[in-house]
Design a protein around this nucleic acid. Structure first.
Lengths: 152, 152
DNA sequence: TATTGTTATACTCTATAACTATA
DNA sequence: TATAGTTATAGAGTATAACAATA
């Protein structure tokens, strides 16, 4: 049984609420730059370098057809570009335009800033425990599914 | 490969990835019961009892007009009902139908189960630190905005 | 006048199924 | 045949603006 300082929240409850808070930060920061949450996520992901549609759809957990529309709209807004590959003419890599890179960086920084601020009052060692505990959860999940999400 | 106590992830990076993982769990569990993520969230929120449209729109961070549609669809599926108030005939409270309550409970349990499983390998004291650290973050945010999200 | 909620409208986001082009 | 990506279609989710009904 739990004897010492009992956590106020159940463990899973805490995770769910935290997730929604982070999601909200993501939405608000995106809105400041007139980005939808999905566009924000796309830009953050592409910060790591160009990615093909199939890999992108796996990373974002989206059907390829859904991704086509997302990339279409981002392309129309001048945030990303489709670059065709001469070797395999079926494929294309999606890469950031300078404007996309700029907005992606702004969004990334805005999210970091706000999350840091939220956690500002936590003692340093709690932050470390938090980060490494989360790292453990993510590692367990990655080992099980082979999936990594690398946004923000 | 994870060796030292040094966090592998930056703090904010860890939060963002965790949030996306939780979100994905939410989506997958909802899908098992043919619920959209938004419906799942709505049902979980209403588990605490009937809520009016205005308060609901604040809790979910949605415009009232967006909420109208969400409730319409949920009502058409027989998950919730609008109950009009005789005292103030402008307002209505949204409450779960038996079917909505059933699906809400299933979704809630499914989410808890999976998150527990993901965290299954964490030492007990890390889970407690994690939960209380998150509690601190949420409390700080709530103090600042006066908002609570009470889903799942 | 202020509030509660809805309607009208125009997007974005998403999935399924069928398709084209290339390998 | 198999893979990479698109198109067609339908529906859900969302916001803004204008509105109706009630307080």
């Amino acid at each position: 049984m739990v004897t010492t300082r009992e956590p106020v929240l159940h463990f899973t409850q805490a995770l769910v609420r935290l997730a929604h808070l982070v999601q909200q930060v993501f939405i608000e920061v995106g809105k400041e730059h007139e980005l939808t949450p999905q566009q924000t996520q796309l830009l953050c992901l592409l910060t790591g370098g160009p990615v093909g549609m199939t890999e992108l759809s796996r990373s974002l957990h989206l059907e390829k057809s859904s991704l086509t529309g997302l990339v279409d709209r981002a392309e129309k807004r001048g945030l990303v570009a489709r670059v065709r590959d001469a070797r395999d003419r079926r494929t294309c890599r999606i890469e950031l335009t300078p404007e996309g890179r700029r907005l992606g960086a702004l969004a990334h920084d805005g999210v970091s800033e706000r999350l840091e601020a939220l956690a500002g009052e936590l003692p340093r060692e709690h932050r470390d425990v938090l980060a490494s505990a989360i790292g453990g959860i993510l590692a367990a999940h990655t080992a099980r599914t082979g999936r990594v999400w690398s946004g923000a």
